[in-house]
Design a protein around this nucleic acid. Structure first.
Lengths: 190, 190
DNA sequence: GCCGGGAGTTAGCGGACGTTAACCCGGACA
DNA sequence: TGTCCGGGTTAACGTCCGCTAACTCCCGGC
């Protein structure tokens, strides 16, 4: 009975997750109460426990889902000529950052509010995703130091993920084009 | 039992601020209790109120100080040929990010845990700092759209500030060199 | 027409946290 | 030498929060 219902539209659950992402992004995990979250989806307080075993579990589901989606997206684009792979990875990460900025924010803000087990799992997923970037960069620039590649990858994430912070009201595709160009240009400096 | 006051020893206040920065960076503002913070500096709990009127005031002092230092550093380097100014700004921001990663983290993680007044003040300082970058970029690339310049500036911050997230144990000056090169290269893509 | 269970409600518990109160103590100095 | 006072202590208060309990209601299947 505790088995997850794999129905095709548990809309409440998803609504809660989406709303939680927004609130956590704005106020931080500890800055959002169960009651507030409930109110934000139109139910109140303890009703959330009909859908999630607890607040931490909710955060865990959010973060695991994000990192799994990033990893899956990365894997889909990992094969081929390194320059094309890199371009695809940049576009993918950029798309994610532009379309779901809350998730980007939550992921690096509240990672350590997770219980140990989930945190380790998320870290593992993230590390694997980064390794795709590292491998691609090293295929493109043979002899590049792995640590340097890792620094470059994280730097590129910072660049591409900067849109949530800049709160730019400029036209989204111009922002996208600019950041893509900056990222690809930066990565020629290796 | 109080240690004899050595002149250049950091005062209690400073010790508290420094320690708070580290703890806030690791666990977030709401994730650190007054008692924990007190314990971390060797006193316990309410003694902090001898030095600060409250927890929020402590955070405010941290954040205002950070953004004032950034702005001051930016202003010092703002005059001269735009390419040289830009290089100096990159080096400055990079230095800050490498030497005080906790402050970088706290600044964009806990900004909205500030009381209104302080938050507005910090935002203002930050905006002014960004404008130095924007002006420099537009002097370097005449006709560059101001919004685009702003996006580019924030992107560069993201790139340069990525070191706290990457937790790289690579040699610091190699990291610095790599990120500086990436940033300056990226900014040629405008 | 019953009835079983998913989904919601309010009441309440226990613990943590920020803050205040009341007290203490050691040293600088008139 | 007596007195202030800065900086520390512990106790306690009030609030908020996560979570549980107990109850209600709607609705689909037999």
């Amino acid at each position: 009975m505790a088995a997850p219902r794999v129905d095709n539209a548990p809309s409440r659950r998803e609504q809660i997750l989406r709303t939680a992402a927004g609130l956590f992004a704005r106020h931080g995990f500890h800055g959002v109460s169960i009651a507030e979250l409930g109110a934000a989806v139109g139910i109140s307080g303890p009703a959330l426990y009909r859908h999630f075993p607890g607040k931490e579990a909710l955060l865990a589901e959010l973060l695991v889902d994000i990192s799994e989606r990033l990893l899956a997206g990365g894997r889909e684009r990992a094969t081929g000529e390194p320059d094309e792979v890199l371009a695809a990875l940049v576009d993918f990460q950029l798309d994610f950052a532009l379309h779901e900025p809350e998730l980007i924010v939550v992921q690096d803000r509240d990672l350590d509010n997770l219980p140990e087990a989930d945190r380790r799992r998320v870290r593992r997923l993230q590390r694997t995703y980064v390794e795709i970037w590292v491998d691609t960069l090293r295929r493109l620039h043979p002899g590049l130091d792995p640590d340097a590649a890792r620094v470059a990858a994280h730097g590129t994430f910072g660049l591409l993920n900067s849109t949530p912070h800049s709160g730019s009201r400029a036209a989204p595709d111009e922002v996208a084009g600019l950041l893509r160009r900056m990222a690809l240009t930066a990565l020629t400096a290796l």
